[in-house]
Design a protein around this nucleic acid. Structure first.
Lengths: 211, 211
DNA sequence: TCTATCTTTGACCAATTAGTTAAATTATTT
DNA sequence: AAATAATTTAACTAATTGGTCAAAGATAGA
């Protein structure tokens, strides 16, 4: 027999999944409670029964997605390995993640830019503020060998992030110049290729960097 | 004496400027006609007098901004110069442009992703579809010397674009990990630094690329 | 089975929002 | 100066949208 709590779970997670899809697709301002209810296959009143307001529902979805993205990014750099190894693992795993969640980066970028307060929670809670120092300190010898000073870390980190995230976020715009990007199969192949291209590109640039 | 056409121009361009600001800030779905009227210092009915509907006003603004962005990108690569020189000029000028128009990339990315048809006009009109071949053919000798085949061009182009555009588009998100990015003065200094960093990074990676 | 609680729904409400209209004001032409 | 045309406004309308409510249906415990 199906228990009540499982039913709650079913409905609530049906709602949550539908809300995730709709918010990712249309953004907060473009999303409609009715549209979320429709996609979840339920009544709009039931939506408000489980999540009192649009803001509450959005916040629940947003924070799960933000954490999902950052956990992926950060977990790899917290492991025990050389910087070079981490770079490869990061690009491999992050690109796989992005292929599976192609709408996520642009969604997060947009919502945060429309409402910077959204990032506040994570900022304090997980102390990501220190991440630059943490990474640098763990690999200072290796990075110094590449001519990277602590003050260069933002440049390097944003470069690495951009190598994987930018193509996914900017896909539709780049497709104006490169129509083959419109074909999802080709785009995914491009992203697979990119694992190797990006890792090679960054490591070559680092190893031959003038100090 | 102020002529009628200038007056029209004044009001129309006041509206256009206000609409540009509001759309860039809030996106199509988040923008309000009343908000645009307020920012332009006029009545809402007057908005509809000059631009019949929200869609019409948005389209006018959007296409100007899309063209602005692409002209900037493409003009440099159409000049007579070596690829290396173009790369430097592109990063210099594009980063200056982005510092002045920090909300532009995310706005365009978002609106196109919410409504891919928006890109159609430009795609056909300016034949950007061929840009990859155009650039490659002009620099095939130099690029082949770096071990770049024609099929590598998308990887290279998206890398170069991402080096300049990503930091601006992802600023607020990267600021979660690097709080100093929240300070506009520091961020702009970072972008200035990036001209040199990115140019050096890309050229080093190209020159030492294994073929 | 009876009761209390939890879940789901249809109908409704109030606020917001894009868009209209008719009249008033200002500018242009003759 | 008078007539005509363009510009601007206040007040309004219709549709959309987030949110409520009371009642019906389902579930679990006594």
């Amino acid at each position: 027999m199906v228990k009540k709590k499982e039913l709650i779970g079913q409905t609530q997670s049906k709602i949550f999944d539908a809300a995730t899809e709709v918010f990712e697709e249309k953004g907060y301002a473009g999303a409609r409670m009715q549209g979320i209810a429709d996609r979840a296959g339920i009544n709009k009143a039931l939506l408000h029964y489980y999540f009192r307001t649009k803001d509450q529902l959005f916040m629940a979805v947003f924070h799960v997605l933000l954490k999902k993205m950052f956990d992926k990014i950060l977990s790899i750099f917290m492991e025990e390995a050389t910087f070079k190894e981490k770079l490869r693992r990061f690009l491999d795993e992050n690109i796989d993640f992005l292929i599976k969640n192609p709408k996520l980066p642009l969604f997060l970028l947009n919502e945060i830019s429309h409402n910077p307060a959204l990032a506040e929670g994570l900022k304090e809670k997980l102390q990501y503020g220190q991440i630059r120092d943490l990474i640098y300190d763990r690999h200072s010898k290796e990075l110094k060998g590449y001519g990277i000073k602590k003050s260069d870390m933002p440049q390097l980190m944003i470069t690495i992030m951009g190598m994987s995230v930018f193509p996914v976020a900017a896909r539709d715009m780049m497709a104006i110049m490169m129509p083959q990007m419109n074909d999802t199969r080709k785009f995914n192949a491009f992203m697979q290729e990119r694992k190797e291209f990006a890792a090679g590109f960054v490591m070559t640039a680092l190893k031959n960097r003038k100090k």
